[in-house]
C-alpha cells in the first residue's frame, strides 16, 4: 500500500465528514455530548455489566493516535464489519486496517478529533442501554453487533452519523488498499500495464477564423 500522510489526511476528512456536521451544529453537538454523558452515566449505573475483558487487553506499540478504548472499538468494528474469513476477499491479516485508521485519526483537526472521540465513546457505551444489550459494543457477539449497526443506521441523526463515520473509517481503510482489489476483479491502474501511448498536448485548432487581433487592427 502506497499510503502517504497527505493521502491519509484526505481519507480521514472524508470518513469523518458526517461528524464535522455535528461539530458545526451546536444543538446536535450538545445532544451528542449530552447523550455521551448519559450513556456513561447509564454505564456507570450498571458498572458490573459495563466492565469489559478488552479493558485489560494491550494496544500495540505502533498505535499512536487511538486511545485504548478507541483502538478496541475499531478492532471489534473491523471484525464485525469485515467478516472476510472463509471468503475470497483479502484477509484482514494482509491489510493493516487499524494502522490506517490510526494514521487517519491522527490527521484530524483537534476540534473534530475531540468530537469523534466523544462519538465513539457514545457508540460503545450506549449499547449498554440501547437495545438493552446490557454490555458495551466491544463485547457484543457478531450477530448482536451487526444488529446494533443496522439499528443505528435507521436511528436518529446522531445515530446515523456515528454509524456512517465508523463504517467509513473501516471500509475506506480496507478498500483503498490495492491488495483488496484482485478478489473483486477491480483492475486498479492499467495504463502502464496496457502500454497505452501518451498523446501529449492537443494540436492548436485552425485559427484562420480568428477574431481580428490587436496587432492586425493597429
Amino acid at each position: 500500500m502506497t499510503s502517504s500522510p497527505e493521502s491519509d489526511r484526505a481519507a480521514a476528512h472524508q470518513a469523518a465528514a458526517p461528524m464535522a456536521a455535528l461539530s458545526r451544529r451546536r444543538f446536535l453537538k450538545t445532544a451528542l455530548l449530552g447523550s455521551a454523558g448519559l450513556a456513561v452515566l447509564a454505564g456507570g449505573t450498571f458498572a458490573v455489566l459495563r466492565r469489559s475483558p478488552v479493558d485489560g487487553m494491550a494496544v500495540p506499540d505502533t498505535i499512536r493516535h487511538l486511545s485504548h478504548g478507541e483502538y478496541h472499538l475499531f478492532r471489534r468494528a473491523t471484525e464485525v464489519l469485515l467478516p472476510v474469513a472463509g471468503t475470497p476477499l483479502t484477509p484482514l491479516s494482509e491489510v493493516p486496517v487499524l494502522a490506517h485508521i490510526d494514521a487517519m485519526m491522527g490527521l484530524l483537526p483537534a476540534h473534530l478529533r475531540k468530537d469523534v472521540s466523544a462519538g465513539l465513546a457514545l457508540f460503545d457505551n450506549a449499547a449498554v442501554v440501547s437495545g438493552w444489550h446490557g454490555r458495551r459494543f466491544v463485547d457484543l457477539d457478531d450477530n448482536a453487533a451487526v444488529a446494533y449497526f443496522d439499528r443505528w443506521s435507521r436511528g436518529h441523526v446522531i445515530q446515523r452519523t456515528l454509524n456512517a463515520v465508523i463504517k467509513q473509517f473501516v471500509y475506506v481503510s480496507y478498500w483503498r488498499d490495492p491488495k483488496t482489489w484482485p478478489p473483486v476483479e477491480f483492475d486498479g491502474p492499467v495504463s502502464d500495464r496496457w502500454g497505452i501511448a501518451y498523446l501529449g498536448n492537443a494540436p492548436l485548432p485552425d485559427e484562420s477564423a480568428l477574431p481580428q487581433t490587436v496587432e492586425n487592427r493597429t
Binding site: V80, L81, L82, P83, V84, T87, P88, L89, D142, A145, V146, F149, D150, S153, K167, Y171, W175, V184
Partner: peptide, 11 residues
C-alpha cells in the same frame, strides 16, 4: 451495510 451484507455486496 454491516458485516455479511457488506461482504456480499462487494463480492
Amino acid at each position: 451495510g454491516a458485516g455479511p451484507d457488506h461482504i456480499n455486496f462487494m463480492k
